[in-house]
């Protein structure tokens, strides 16, 4: 492929150019037995038990950032949503919206990254679609993925299942993805030394469930961050949540960048971390399972669910005070008068 080749409207017209793009980029990096059928739809053997299905669209600026790119993110985001319900992800579909003028080399980098991420997550991309829109009608490249997984019988996980007394765990440091994207997007020209944490979490969930079969729920704190996810869980479960600020793991570089930019890491997106709520007596087992996994070495118990004032989430601050955490209605706006 020539260095300076770009996406043209022809690439989406369904003719020869489309066919060539499919072969040279998509088939090359995403190939598997199902996709090789090259038909209107994929035919799959029905797996036993219950299916878990999720879909998500990915719009990231910039496409490439320290620690990842839109391709692997589009795999991780969807397989993680499947995994949070306890599902084992098996299949993925992928739809691409390409802006005319996108460098073919960039597209191939993204698709190659998707291929590697899918292989690592143990999922096959079984169906796909590509559309090309004119300049300015999209921002370079959008991806939609849908994921299919299977759920073991008897496994019931969900946001409404937390109970007073339960422990709240996170699998590692918070805010890495959000602060990295923000710094990269804004082109601050600063080396903040942070990296996105984007990663597939199904194995980690499986390890925790093996050690802690009573786990109530998993949640990946993506947009809105830890605070928003916990507030949703507290409201859905009718419990309050009390967090210990000192126990919440935050990487030094992320803390430093947040301090400089005036951001709160508890509201920043994560793409390779999970929250687990577990009965107190199984919390240590869950923690040990997380720490035994490559993606959970900085896992921590950060708080507990309590019965009083259902729906509230607060932080016991490092200096001994208490601070309420809320869902933000939008961009954080100053409140100090």
């Amino acid at each position: 492929m020539a260095q300076n080749e770009t996406i043209q409207l022809d690439h989406g017209a369904g003719g020869l150019a489309s066919r060539r793009l499919l072969e040279r980029v998509f088939a090359k990096h995403l190939a598997n037995d199902v996709l090789a059928q090259m038909d209107d739809a994929a035919v799959l053997a029905a797996p036993g038990g219950r299916l878990v299905v999720s879909t998500d669209s990915f719009v990231v600026d910039p496409l490439f950032f320290p620690g990842g790119d839109i391709g692997c993110l589009a795999v991780h985001g969807t397989v993680n949503d499947v995994a949070m319900r306890g599902g084992r992800p098996l299949y993925l579909t992928a739809g691409f919206v390409l802006e005319e003028g996108l460098a073919l080399a960039d597209l191939e980098r993204v698709v190659a990254s998707m291929g590697r991420a899918a292989a690592q997550a143990g999922v096959k991309v079984i169906a796909g679609d590509t559309k090309v829109v004119g300049r300015g009608q999209a921002d370079k490249l959008f991806i939609n993925t849908a994921g299919i997984g299977v759920l073991a019988d008897g496994l019931e996980l969900g946001a409404s299942r937390a109970r007073a007394g339960d422990a709240v765990l996170v699998s590692g440091t918070l805010g890495d993805h959000g602060v990295t994207i923000m710094a990269a997007r804004q082109g601050l020209g600063l080396d903040l030394s942070t990296r996105s944490d984007t990663a597939p979490l199904a194995d980690l969930v499986a390890d925790v469930l093996a050690a802690c079969p009573g786990a109530r729920l998993f949640r990946d704190p993506t947009r809105g961050g830890l605070a928003t996810a916990l507030k949703e869980i507290a409201e859905a479960s009718g419990v309050a949540m009390e967090l210990d600020e000192a126990a919440i793991p935050i990487a030094g570089a992320v803390a430093g960048a947040c301090e400089l930019l005036g951001l709160d890491p508890l509201y920043l997106a994560n793409e390779g971390k999970l929250i687990c709520v577990a009965p107190a007596e199984q919390a240590q087992a869950a923690l040990a399972a997380m720490r035994g996994h490559r993606l959970g070495d900085r896992a921590a118990i950060i708080g507990r669910a309590v019965a009083e004032k259902p729906g509230r989430v607060w932080l016991n601050t490092a200096v001994g005070g208490r601070r309420l955490l809320e869902m933000l209605s939008g961009e954080p706006l100053p409140r100090i008068c």
């Binding site: 923000m182 804004q186 082109g187 601050l188 020209g189 600063l190 930019l261 005036g262 951001l263 954080p332 706006l333 100053p334």
Partner: peptide, 10 residues
Amino acid sequence: AMIARGLNAP
């Protein structure tokens, strides 16, 4: 840079 790019600079 924060001011120029509107990054958390209301």
